[in-house]
Design a protein around this nucleic acid. Structure first.
Lengths: 202, 202
DNA sequence: TTATATTTAGAACAAATGTACTAATTTATT
DNA sequence: AATAAATTAGTACATTTGTTCTAAATATAA
């Protein structure tokens, strides 16, 4: 593996396990057995490592969203599949979510990028909701503001389930993903029509 | 005001506005116009400042919970009132929520304390839910697992609405509280009985 | 007033950190 | 094989940070 890729891989491991503020460029170099000089030859500034990792996450997430958009018509299964894949992706880059505010304070461009991503996700969710309402999966007797609130909830839970896990249960890997998948599935349940609810519980 | 109190007040201001990692004991001392030596006479370790501020938050929150428990029978208004007060309290100590994972990595005892608090809050919520179901406010046709999921949702949104705000809208003060109060109110809406829903929208 | 305790300022230290610089070494190109 | 380009190691430097220490100043008590 080339050094640059190896730096990114090692940095991701260390950031994920010890947090973005506890790890310095020297730690990464030491873990790899290379010199600090070498590391800074590949990344002049340490922040570039974080930016690059964030870009990987954003790219992977964009791909996930494209897949979601391409499925037509979307079903509840599509949505569930998407949420599980999202959780898996977030887990892979979990240090970003665990230290999101920290990171955006350190690298403001990440905040701007994330904000743009959020806006795209919002319209995407509304499209899917509209379709699922038409298909009799989601209730259509709820005021519009309730759906808006739901989208914000989804973003908060989607971005901070890892932090919640860190503060409370501290589940790892598959266990964490399984647990929070259920939370998210449960989150949608009251928005389903009685028919769709039945289809799930049986 | 005595110096110790003043240190806490200044620290809270600085942490809230610039983040817990950007602010050092020297910044706090400089802002107050006192020497670093003086600051460290009152707080031998900088972390003690953070711990003390966390304890203030926990104490205030405990008081809020006691008030909630004392109201009997609890109504939907009780719940709404409680959530608004919670948001106000969180806003006052927002640096803790914006840097929660960071802080618990730095001061592990805070995580333990928070975990205990969460467990108490959980049982409290279930008590209230049970009562509101009996009173015909909350639906009683939802599986138990859905209510469990709701409690986790409440914790995640309650703890990280400030982070979400920081990443997206960046509303300040009353505007932020007003906005996220609505989100939380909307969060409960699908769990209400049709009768209770009507009572709200009219 | 005198003695004692508390509070404060300011200097000092060690450790850590980001990053730049230089020289050596390895790899690629001709 | 000779030359040029790239990668790498190791050192060095300025800054920052948490914390300690000492002495001065201030407040309190007798």
């Amino acid at each position: 593996m080339d050094t640059r890729t190896n730096i990114l891989k090692t940095a991701l491991e260390l950031y994920n396990s010890q947090g973005v503020n506890a790890i310095t460029s020297r730690h990464i170099a030491a873990k790899m057995g290379i010199s600090p000089g070498n590391l800074h030859y590949h990344f002049r500034q340490t922040d570039e490592i974080i930016s690059t990792l964030y870009e990987s996450l954003a790219t992977d997430f964009d791909r996930l969203m494209s897949e979601l958009e391409s499925v037509s018509p979307a079903t509840l299964d599509t949505l569930r599949d998407f949420s599980i894949r999202s959780l898996e992706l977030a887990y892979k880059y979990r240090f970003i979510f665990l230290h999101f505010v920290e990171i955006t304070l350190r690298i403001p461009s990440i905040r701007k990028d994330y904000y743009a991503l959020t806006r795209r996700r919002t319209t995407e969710f509304f499209t899917i909701f509209r379709q699922l309402k038409a298909d009799g999966v989601f209730r259509d007797d709820l005021p519009e503001s309730i759906w808006e609130a739901l989208v914000t909830q989804i973003f908060i839970v989607g971005d901070f389930w890892l932090s919640n896990n860190e503060l409370t249960g501290r589940l790892r890997g598959g266990n964490a993903i399984k647990h929070y998948s259920k939370i998210i599935a449960g989150m949608f349940y009251p928005y389903l029509t009685p028919a769709a609810q039945l289809r799930i519980t049986e």
